[in-house]
Simulated assay, not measured.
Amino acid sequence: MTRLTSHFLSASALALAASLMAAPAQAQSTLEEVQSSGSIRIGFANEAPFGYQNIEGELTGEAPEVAKAVLERMGVTEVEGVLTEFGSLIPGLQAGRFDMIAAGMYVTPARCEQILFSEPSYAIGEAFAVAEGNPEDLHSYEDFVENPDLKLGVMAGAVEVGYAEAVGIPQDQLVVFPDGPSAVAGVRTGRVDAYAGTALTIQDLVGKNPEGVERATPFENPVINGEEIQGYGAFGFRKEDEAFRDAFNEVLMEFRGSPEHLALVEPFGFTETEMPEKTTEELCAAGG
């Protein structure tokens, strides 16, 4: 009896050992993966000054440069940019085409349902690019509500689509473009009467493509639910990557607003004035 029991336990132990050897190793989390490899892929939308390729083909802009500074402090030194249309950034992140979004994406309640956001890295208002001389005298989103013959250009997936709808601009007055340069071309050719974007985006586009277009001044930010709209840009992470987001946040919050941070983003038009006052929790809960 003792001999049989001993044989049975030995066989069981062998079977258990074999099953453990055959079991696949537990997959690394994204945080573990990027820290162990020292490399990461980030999605961007080629929208200056937030994230774009310069003439040398290098990834730069406010978001990628801040991301690189934070990630380096986390032991991640190789950053590969994955160029993506703005409206495809969230689906691309969810599909695993890249590990995080560094495109200056605004934190909104709708986006918070799809992905996780870091704390904001900046806050900024809106602007219009219009034809030279501003022939339609456009200075606010409300101008389009008052004149149904006008067309407003917006970028696919951008918050300006929601702003336009919230102030009452009908869908048939909106023309959606894949990116800023094509929208400015639409203004220049008369396809749209204005292109709506962040103040820094419009300033950058008009500065680089001044022929036939200008920035509308003065300009009134849209007022939605009694509050003047200001956008807060942050970094995006997959819902399952909370540990990665939290680790990134910890370093970001130590870095944000520091002299080194301000010097890093100054070439892209950001100053201490653009440092955010609201938290991601507040922004995700806004309006709901």
Rank of each mutant, 00 (worst) to 15 (best):
residue 139 H to T: 15
residue 93 L to Y: 14
residue 6 S to R: 15
residue 138 L to R: 14
residue 76 V to Y: 14
residue 181 P to K: 09
residue 59 L to A: 10
residue 274 E to M: 05
residue 86 F to N: 08
residue 199 A to G: 00
residue 273 T to F: 08
residue 107 V to I: 14
residue 31 L to P: 05
residue 47 E to I: 14
residue 74 M to E: 07
residue 102 A to L: 07
residue 173 Q to L: 04
residue 134 N to S: 09
residue 135 P to N: 03
residue 193 D to Y: 05
residue 107 V to H: 01
residue 222 P to E: 05
residue 128 F to Y: 09
residue 41 R to G: 04
residue 138 L to N: 08
residue 49 P to H: 08
residue 179 D to P: 00
residue 228 E to C: 00
residue 218 P to W: 06
residue 94 Q to D: 09
residue 147 N to A: 04
residue 59 L to R: 14
residue 53 Q to R: 15
residue 26 Q to M: 13
residue 254 E to A: 12
residue 288 G to M: 12
residue 153 G to Y: 03
residue 110 A to H: 05
residue 203 Q to I: 03
residue 155 M to K: 15
residue 253 M to R: 13
residue 4 L to Q: 10
residue 234 A to N: 06
residue 181 P to H: 06
residue 274 E to S: 04
residue 132 E to M: 10
residue 117 F to R: 10
residue 85 E to C: 00
residue 167 V to T: 09
residue 142 E to R: 14
residue 54 N to H: 09
residue 95 A to P: 04
residue 12 S to F: 13
residue 177 F to I: 01
residue 82 V to M: 03
residue 239 K to G: 03
residue 112 C to P: 09
residue 63 A to C: 03
residue 129 A to T: 15
residue 82 V to C: 03
residue 36 S to L: 05
residue 17 A to Y: 06
residue 90 I to C: 07
residue 274 E to W: 02
residue 88 S to D: 13
residue 138 L to V: 11
residue 125 G to L: 06
residue 191 R to C: 00
residue 104 G to S: 09
residue 260 E to R: 09
residue 177 F to C: 03
residue 119 E to C: 02
residue 149 D to C: 02
residue 171 Q to E: 15
residue 62 E to S: 07
residue 42 I to S: 00
residue 283 L to A: 10
residue 100 M to S: 05
residue 47 E to D: 03
residue 94 Q to P: 01
residue 271 T to G: 07
residue 181 P to Y: 08
residue 10 S to R: 15
residue 36 S to F: 04
residue 112 C to D: 10
residue 247 A to K: 14
residue 92 G to V: 02
residue 166 A to G: 02
residue 246 D to E: 10
residue 231 G to I: 10
residue 48 A to P: 13
residue 83 L to G: 00
residue 214 E to R: 06
residue 83 L to W: 12
residue 83 L to D: 07
residue 111 R to P: 04
